[in-house]
Nucleic acid binder design. Structure first.
Length: 415
RNA sequence: GUGGUCGUAGUUCAAUGGUAGAGCCCCGGCUUGUGAUGCCGGUUGUUGGGGGUUCGAAUCCCCUCGACCACCCCA
């Protein structure tokens, strides 16, 4: 293995084996999105850096240290998008859709964060996400979470569960924040180093600290769900009732917090225990303030995103069979004189919708080996005899049966 | 960004500081018209890269790149 060019750290190639899984996921997801009346949008990978600074929050890790940001030749500050929501909001506003009623969008594509790579955590990774602009009530939350759950169901994933929480709103969160901060101050000397920082920067973060000793101190910590204002309580209760009505299994996890600043009220995650520390497979929540934050009219909205690579890994772990398009017929041409005839036969078979691989001529043994390696269902043997008779010899590789017939008959046999 | 494990043929893995090997894959032949299943033969490596210690380094040391694991954070 001499010195050779390789892809950038944390940026991996999608090779056929893995892409087959992704395509399966995309097909299943697209069907679910359609059933929920969501339409696809295709948004830029490159956005003004300012967009994420204003939406995600300057203090977040994503913006402060994980963005691929640079100045282009014209002096503009650009970056590779680290997530999809901000760009979607920008597009929604730029297209002037604020008075066009609810917009239900989904998207898929690469996102970029400069983190230390691990399995299921890449620097370029793909997300499939959905955003619903103009979604005001808990009914939309229920639909959104139900759709998220249905997406996961559509690819038959095992060992996943949904957790929900409410993050409150600008009316009730500040008071809760104060309560929590006071509580934490009492416990301060028992908390870890990072939690000391978090107490001030984002006290709710302390709640999901993974340090054992911190968690032991926090067993009776005040929780947001117990300090919601009346409208938030009502919203959250209706959400739970709706999920129950749809028989969607969920647990309330009062420790769910959001890394991005723009979330309020409903926050949820679909989690697996199969991917080590990278167990979040789909996550999202309500962001009623973001549209106005970016200069639009007050527009309630909710969204989520799922990590395609993580779903693909889970698909393998769950041994879900991804039907891949195999070769129907491998064409074996025997003798140089039969080349043109074999090409014509292959073309005709393809015109009838079959997947055909021409084995390239040469000796029969080699061509059969190719057919076998490609898991072809049939081999069409085309020698001089067949060419003279305008026929072909068709062998079923699984049974070993072999017949000689004309093309029309062969096609019926294959289908 | 912090800490740790690892890196040998296309691939999976061997090799106490002393000649770099095996299985699988691939290619060819036995069988110039028949695979999955037989037999025979064959190709492949600057041991991730660079430097050092040593008579001698895949093996020990340093640096670097990458994968993975935990933290951090998150999809």
């Amino acid at each position: 293995m001499a010195k050779q060019l390789q892809s950038i750290r944390g940026i991996h190639d999608g090779l056929p084996g893995e892409v087959a899984n992704w395509q399966f996921i995309e097909r299943q997801f697209e069907q679910v999105f359609r059933q929920y009346a969501f339409a696809e949008v295709r948004l830029p990978v490159l956005e003004p850096t300012e967009l994420f600074v204003r939406s995600i929050g300057e203090e977040t890790d994503i913006v402060s240290k994980e963005m691929y940001a640079f100045e282009d030749q014209g002096g503009d500050h650009l970056c590779l998008r680290p997530e999809g929501t901000a760009g979607a909001v920008r597009a929604y506003l730029q297209a002037g859709l604020t008075r066009s009623g609810g917009q239900r969008w989904y998207y898929k594509g690469p996102m970029f964060r400069r983190e230390r790579p691990q399995k299921g955590r890449l620097r370029q990774f793909q997300q499939i996400g959905a955003e619903w602009f103009g979604a005001s009530g808990p009914a939309e939350d229920i639909d959104m979470l139900a759709m998220a759950w249905q997406l996961i169901q559509s690819i038959q994933l095992q060992h996943v569960h949904m957790e929900i929480n409410s993050l409150g709103c600008p009316d009730c969160r500040p008071a809760y924040r104060d309560t929590l901060q006071a509580y934490l101050t009492d416990k301060q000397q028992h908390l870890c180093e990072t939690c000391h920082q978090r107490m001030h920067s984002n006290p709710m973060r302390v709640l999901d600290c993974k340090v054992q000793s911190c968690q032991q101190q926090l067993t009776d910590a005040p929780e947001m769900v117990a300090h919601l204002c009346e409208p938030c309580t009502s919203h959250f209760d209706t959400l739970k009732t709706g999920l129950a009505a749809l028989a969607i299994p969920f647990v309330v996890n009062a420790r769910i917090v959001r890394g991005l600043d723009y979330y309020n009220r409903t926050a949820f995650e679909i989690i697996t225990d199969q991917l080590g520390a990278q167990g979040t497979v789909l996550a999202g929540g309500r962001y009623d303030g973001l549209v106005s934050e970016l200069g639009g009219p007050a527009t309630p909205a909710i969204g989520f995103a799922a990590g395609l690579e993580r779903l693909g890994l889970l698909l393998e772990a769950s041994a879900v069979s991804v039907s891949s398009a195999g070769v129907d017929v491998a064409v074996a041409a025997l003798g140089d004189a039969t080349l043109s005839y074999s090409l014509q036969v292959a073309q005709q078979l393809r015109q009838h919708g079959l997947t055909v691989l021409h084995c390239g001529g040469g000796n029969a043994k080699r061509q059969f080996k190719v057919a076998d390696r490609e898991s072809a269902r049939f081999v069409a043997v085309l020698g001089e005899d067949e060419m003279q008779a305008q026929s072909l010899t068709l062998k079923n590789l699984a049974s070993g049966e072999q017949i000689t017939c004309d093309i029309t008959e062969a096609i019926q046999h294959i289908k």
